[in-house]
C-alpha cells in the first residue's frame, strides 16, 4: 500500500512540473507517446530499444521518443546508427530532460496518453510490451 502511495505522489509531482520544451510538443499531442531514456553504455537499454521499435512498428497509433542521456554525443550517435533510431531520437547531452524526470534507473520508459502520464517502467523488463499494453488500457 505504501509503495502505491509513494508511486502516486511521485507521479503527481512529475505532472506538476513543467515538461522540458524539447519534449512538450511531442508529449502533449493526442494519442499514446512512449518516452524512453537510454544510454550507449547501458546493456539493458541496448536490448530493450529494438523491442520497443518493433512494438511501435506493429502499433502505428503509438509513437516513440527515445532520449539519449549520453554526455558524449558521438557514443549515442553510434548506437542510434546501429539500431536505426534516427527518426525518434532526442539527444540530452546536458542531461536536463532526464533530470526533470528523475528516474530511479535506466532504461526508463514513461507512457503518456493524450498528454497525461499513465505509467512508467523503470529498469529492463522481460515482457515490456505486455507492461505497456496494460498501462494504456
Amino acid at each position: 500500500m505504501r509503495v502505491v502511495v509513494v508511486w502516486m505522489v511521485g507521479v503527481l509531482v512529475l505532472l506538476a512540473q513543467p515538461l522540458p520544451p524539447q519534449l512538450a510538443g511531442t508529449i502533449n499531442k493526442k494519442g499514446i507517446v512512449l518516452v524512453d531514456f537510454f544510454a550507449s553504455w547501458c546493456h539493458s537499454c541496448r536490448k530493450e530499444l529494438p523491442i520497443l521499435l518493433d512494438f511501435v512498428k506493429r502499433h502505428p497509433d503509438i509513437s516513440l521518443v527515445a532520449v539519449d542521456v549520453d554526455e558524449n554525443k558521438e557514443a549515442g550517435e553510434a548506437l542510434v546508427e546501429e539500431l536505426g533510431l534516427k527518426s525518434v531520437v532526442l539527444y540530452d547531452t546536458k542531461q536536463e530532460i532526464v533530470k526533470a524526470f528523475d528516474p530511479a534507473g535506466i532504461p526508463a520508459l514513461y507512457i503518456f496518453k493524450d498528454g497525461k502520464l499513465v505509467g512508467s517502467i523503470i529498469g529492463a523488463r522481460k515482457n515490456i510490451q505486455a507492461h505497456i499494453l496494460k498501462a494504456i488500457q
Binding site: A39, W41, C42, H43, S44, C45, A104, G105, I106, P107, G123, A124, R125
Partner: peptide, 8 residues
C-alpha cells in the same frame, strides 16, 4: 549486475 546503471 547491469554495470551499475540501475538496470534490473
Amino acid at each position: 549486475g547491469g554495470g551499475g546503471c540501475g538496470c534490473n
